[in-house]
C-alpha cells in the first residue's frame, strides 16, 4: 500500500502530494527513496520551519523519534532523521537532514517546536556526537559526562575502548577501568536465510576466548592454521528444508 492511500487526511499526506505542496515553499526539499512512509530530505537551515509547517498545517503533532545514521566513508557522513506522526490519520512522515560538516556535525535543535526532542537529541548527541545548536541542555544522556567517545559511530568497536571510570576516586581505589569487552568470537549475529535451529545468534568464529586471543594477524593467516568459520561448518550439515 502506498503511503496515504485510502486515508482522508485533510491536506495532502502521500509522498508525492506532501512534497508537491511543500516543495515550492522550502528550497532543496527532495524525496527520499522509501518503502513505508513519506520521506523527504531537507536542508539544515529549513528543518525548523519545515517541522513547524508539518506540525501546524499538516497535523503532524507528535515527534516520535530523532536519530541519526553514520554513512561511514561517504560524505555527508551524518544524516539526522525525524519521525513525525499525525495522530488523527495515523500517518507517519520521515524527514532527514544531512550534516554538512563531517568532522563536527551540527543541526539546529527542534526542542522549541517539540519538547519531546530534548532527550532524543541528547541521545543522538551522546551516540553520534552530532551537536544540536540552541538545545537548552545538550549533555550526554546514556554515557557519563566526560566519556571521550561516541559509541554508535562506525569507527567505534562494539567491545569499547579502554578509558577511565566515570569516578576517578573509585577508579583509583579499585584500579578498575573501562576495558574492551571480550568478544569471544562475537559479535553474535543471527544468520539469516537458514532454518531457525541454525539461525540463532552465535559467534562467527568460536575458536578464541578470553584465554585464547584472536591472533593479531588473523586476517592475514591462510591455510590450515586458520580456524574454520561457521559458514564452512554449516556447509557440512544436512540442510533442513523448511
Amino acid at each position: 500500500m502506498s503511503a496515504g492511500e485510502g486515508v482522508d487526511s485533510g491536506p495532502a499526506t502521500g509522498t508525492g502530494e506532501l512534497l508537491d505542496s511543500l516543495g515550492p515553499r522550502f528550497e532543496g526539499l527532495e524525496p527520499r527513496p522509501t518503502t513505508d512512509h513519506p520521506a523527504t530530505r531537507c536542508r539544515a537551515e529549513f528543518i525548523r520551519p519545515l517541522l513547524k509547517t508539518l506540525r501546524d498545517e499538516y497535523g503532524y503533532l507528535m515527534l516520535m523519534d530523532v536519530t541519526a545514521v553514520d554513512w561511514d566513508e561517504e560524505s555527508p557522513r551524518f544524516t539526522v532523521f525525524y519521525h513525525l506522526l499525525n495522530p488523527k490519520t495515523a500517518q507517519y512522515a520521515r524527514v532527514s537532514v544531512d550534516c554538512l560538516d563531517d568532522d563536527e556535525p551540527e543541526v539546529p535543535s527542534v526542542v522549541s517546536l517539540f519538547a519531546a526532542a530534548e532527550w532524543h537529541e541528547r541521545e543522538t548527541y551522546d551516540m553520534f556526537g552530532i551537536r544540536f545548536t540552541d538545545h537548552p541542555d545538550l549533555r550526554r544522556i546514556l554515557m557519563w559526562d566526560g566519556y571521550p567517545y561516541f559509541p554508535l559511530r562506525k569507527e567505534f568497536p562494539l567491545a569499547g575502548i579502554e578509558t577511565e571510570l566515570p569516578d576517578s576516586e573509585v577508579g583509583e581505589a579499585t584500579e578498575a577501568k573501562v576495558l574492551p569487552a571480550p568478544m569471544m568470537g562475537g559479535p553474535f549475529v543471527a544468520q539469516s536465510g537458514q532454518p531457525m535451529s541454525a539461525s540463532e545468534p552465535r559467534g562467527r568464529d568460536e575458536s578464541w576466548t578470553e584465554h585464547h586471543h584472536r591472533p593479531e594477524d588473523f586476517d592475514a593467516l591462510e591455510g590450515p592454521e586458520q580456524p574454520e568459520t561457521l559458514e564452512d561448518r554449516s556447509g557440512d550439515k544436512p540442510r533442513i528444508e523448511d
Binding site: M143, P151, F156, P157, A159, A176, V178, A181, P182
Partner: peptide, 12 residues
Amino acid sequence: RSYATMQGVDHV
C-alpha cells in the same frame, strides 16, 4: 559484551 557494561561487578 559491549562498551557500556562492566564485565562482572568483582572489578569494583
